[in-house]
């Protein structure tokens, strides 16, 4: 019972920190102006063009692909496997489970291995390439360890110490609908949930801010039309 209460409270706190933290950050980004037109050119000249550029950046990691093929490969595999895995997890939060979520369950399983592979690749680069090693601080390794821990504990629940997922789902739905049900006391599950909570809490204070940040990057989201449209900013002094 104590375990259930502790995790229920932790989940509320972590969710609040995650949501409020990111919202505050996004608000700050949105409020801070870009006084000058600085897209990295060649850049689209229209809004539609910018949307397409941003979509390529977010979905395909276009710039990273130009920059480093290995990092792109590992990074892309990791992120898209993560999307699948997260989608797969929706079944713990919905009743009845949506059709498409049920349909991708098998895919999500493979994706978990792909995530681990992607993370391992990224970590290997961080350790082996002298330039990347130089720029890494302890938090960069810790972040990888955290993510790897989440993936491995998740896999362990499936393949090593089986967790009672029916009870787990009841616990999760209980948190959402304020109708508390006990959390199964499986070690792998406890580790898994603890690490996820930790990730949610550090998100708004860490480099994970790259996720909202990319949408606000002026070199990517500005149109190349300074001759056609006069760009003005409140703080910038008008010519004398």
């Amino acid at each position: 019972m104590v375990l259930t209460a502790v995790f229920a409270v932790l989940f509320y706190i972590a969710t609040a920190i995650l949501v409020i933290g990111i919202a505050a950050r996004v608000r700050r980004y949105a409020k801070t102006p870009s006084p000058l037109v600085i897209p990295t050119t060649p850049a689209p000249t229209t809004r539609a063009g910018v949307t397409a550029r941003m979509a390529r950046e977010v979905i395909l990691f276009e710039s990273l692909f130009k920059g480093s093929k290995w990092t792109w490969l590992f990074g892309w595999v990791f992120h898209f496997a993560m999307v699948l895995v997260l989608a797969r997890h929706l079944r713990y939060f919905t009743e009845p489970v949506w059709g498409w979520v049920a349909a991708i369950q098998w895919l999500g399983l493979y994706a978990a291995f792909a995530m681990a592979l992607g993370l391992a690749g990224l970590w290997a680069r961080r350790l082996l390439v002298d330039r990347v090693r130089y720029i890494s601080s302890p938090s960069d390794h810790l972040m990888l360890a955290l993510l790897m821990g989440i993936v491995l504990s998740g896999l362990a629940m499936k393949y090593v110490w089986h967790t009672d997922v029916v009870a787990l789902k009841a616990f999760m739905l209980g948190i959402i609908y304020i109708d508390y049900k006990p959390l199964p006391a499986d070690p792998a599950l406890i580790v898994h949930l603890s690490l996820v909570i930790a990730l949610m809490i550090v998100f708004p204070f860490s480099k994970l801010l790259h996720a909202p940040g990319v949408f606000f990057s002026p070199t990517r989201n500005m149109r190349d039309d300074p001759r056609e449209r006069r760009h003005v900013t409140p703080w910038a002094p008008e010519r004398s």
């Binding site: 870009s34 480093s68 961080r126 480099k207 801010l209 940040g213 606000f216 070199t219």
Partner: peptide, 16 residues
């Protein structure tokens, strides 16, 4: 400068 603010936060040290 939004550039400075976002750039300070967003780098993931990917090394690209």
């Amino acid at each position: 400068y939004r550039s400075l603010q976002v750039f300070m936060d967003a780098c993931v040290k990917c090394g690209a």
